[in-house]
Design a protein around this nucleic acid. Sequence first.
DNA 1: AGCACGCCGACT
DNA 2: GTCGGCGTGCTC
Length: 731
Amino acid sequence: MPKAPAVLHVAVPTPLYRTFDYLAPAPAIAVGARVRVPFGRRELVGVVLSTAGDSELPRAKLKHVRQVLDDTPLLSQDMVALLGWTADYYHHPIGEVFATALPVLLRQGRAATAQGERVYRLTDAGRAADVATLRAASQRSLLAALARAPEPLTASALAEHSAAWSRAVQALMKKGLVAADERPCLTVHSVVCSEAPVLNAAQQAACAAIAATPDTFQAYLLHGITGSGKTEVYLQAIAATLARGRQALVLVPEIALTPQVVARFRARFAVPIAVLHSGLTETERLCAWLAARDGLAPIVLGTRSAAFTPLPKLGLVIVDEEHDASYKQQDGLRYSARDVAVYRASRAKVPIVLGSASPSLESVQHARAKRYRLLELPERAGAAALPEVQLLDMRRLKSHDGLSPPLRASIAARLARGEQTLLFLNRRGFSPVWMCHGCGWLAPCARCDARLVYHRGTRQLRCHHCGAEQPVVEACPSCGGAELKPLGEGTERIETALTELFPQARIERIDRDTVRRKGELEAKLEAMHAGHADILVGTQMLTKGHDFPNVTLVGVLNADQGLYSSDFHATERLFQQILQVSGRAGRADKPGQVLIQTWHPQHALFAALVRHDFNAFVEYALAERRETDFPPFSYLALLRAEAATREVALRFLRWARAQGTALAVSGVSLSEPLPAPMERRGGRFRAQLLVQASERRPLHRLLGAWVRALSETREARAVRWSLDVDPVDLY
DNA sequence: AGCACGCCGACT
DNA sequence: GTCGGCGTGCTC
């Protein structure tokens, strides 16, 4: 009598909080393998989480696996456990967690084999061709890019030069100017390694501390002011990890993963590096993922989603700019890559380094409680002085176009000396408001609780929340008046004002309107770096990473946004942003100056900035959090709901609150349902309910039972809802 | 989420 | 008489 086939518990990509049982085919299947299974009338790719002799369901209800996609498991037991933990912690359906963590091609059932990547190079004819003879601009730019590049270029590299690269390269290949090759997707890019520089005492101490705990879970909070050489500490810690034959996982914020950063790693280590970011094609992503999983890439460098890369020989984790909000995914599985990384390190029993110039209050509190070890880099490398920070009291200063007289004078002085200026304003467009001077009407967005932003360049009014755009309104729809004017300043207006004030100055603007394509940001930053620009105006896009040695003045134009916001993270974020942008001033031998325009110069946040006193800010902010009972002194989850009307959204939350209360978990409180701070967005009404607890355990006990109850009832069908564990903002 | 089934309005 | 609206139920 043949033995009945074993039962497989399979995670299927569907928003349901459970696994599904299937009958295994005759040869045994291991945990972590993908299977193609019938699901309703569909066929889906799932992952085997565990096997069992029998199912709780009657055998007749079970279906057979259609196809086994991996003869060796795609994921190790360890990865399966990590993703299982993620599903539990974020109270998210297990199948969707697996789908989020896997490259698209794998989740579609593609074989887990690297096919190499396609690279494009010039043929002899291409090298000889005269670029100017090509009619299509996209073909010209691709040909020029290929001619400049020292080695063949990948699809995603070409995509940075032209949106229409695919058609253009096909055309060029037809003309015999370009040829394509397949190459293994990981190549060693450096032959000569750059020398590791001599470290200062603090850097040495940090390296020594990290090196002292290999094969041990220990979190290090590396607090190093801008320019103090955190990256060098990372690099040396990585070198030690590689020397022990282990892999290093390095996470960086989305906009920080630039070609320069990758180049710095490549120049130092003559080993394959798997780079994972949103700009890759799916083939490239699969390639890098497999190289990491198979241990072929000793270094994995990536953004948020790289936290889920399988690493069989993991020896070190690094999270750069650990406070950065981009580590938190804001839809679907709302995970924090930083927190997943910490958990991974603890599972793998390896050290993790969390680096920042302005660490999150959560991490600071961990360090104070001795759960994390604090490593400080208090000095700027290369003996550069800290910039002088000054407040400009806008209550007493008259400003035109958002620029106060002292700031104008300082910019003029820089121009006269041939030095550069950076102006930071976290608001794009010409003006945030378009107003009728006759009756005070302010152009509203039809679908959001927001004002339309005036964009002068395109003569449009745009909503920055839903993306709606319309031509500028010339006659007031309220009073019929014709005197409509911009009110307030955005980066575009600042740029315009500067052009009028300093006609001889070369001005660059960096925001989402001026850098649409990937390479453009790089090009502008490079122009600034090379001294081809005198003044750089921009949003937080310019706060990351780059050194501008000739920048001696940083102006923060409207420092008050978020100062008295309802969001408990707002002051922390503001402080971090100002600190980060201030760090751009005065490196090397030139002292820098930071001018902050504010209407609230008495605020504790500014006092701390002026004195370069991070700890003073921490004291202030932690005291505030303690008083209001917010993280890190409590744990939060936010239940969000979205519906066609306010009442439907609120009714669902009231019902959810009743369900949650009925679960009677002590130590957890559920707030009253409230409309979101911006209630209407994109024509939908949003509301939310805050869950707060002083301990993690009861919070999760409640959430686990709660989301299952919510998902299984029909009340939930009336709305779109989601649960956000450890929300970073309450919007 | 998909994808079906199922029972009530304006159309070739 | 049918095409199709979205309410409700199920997925091993």
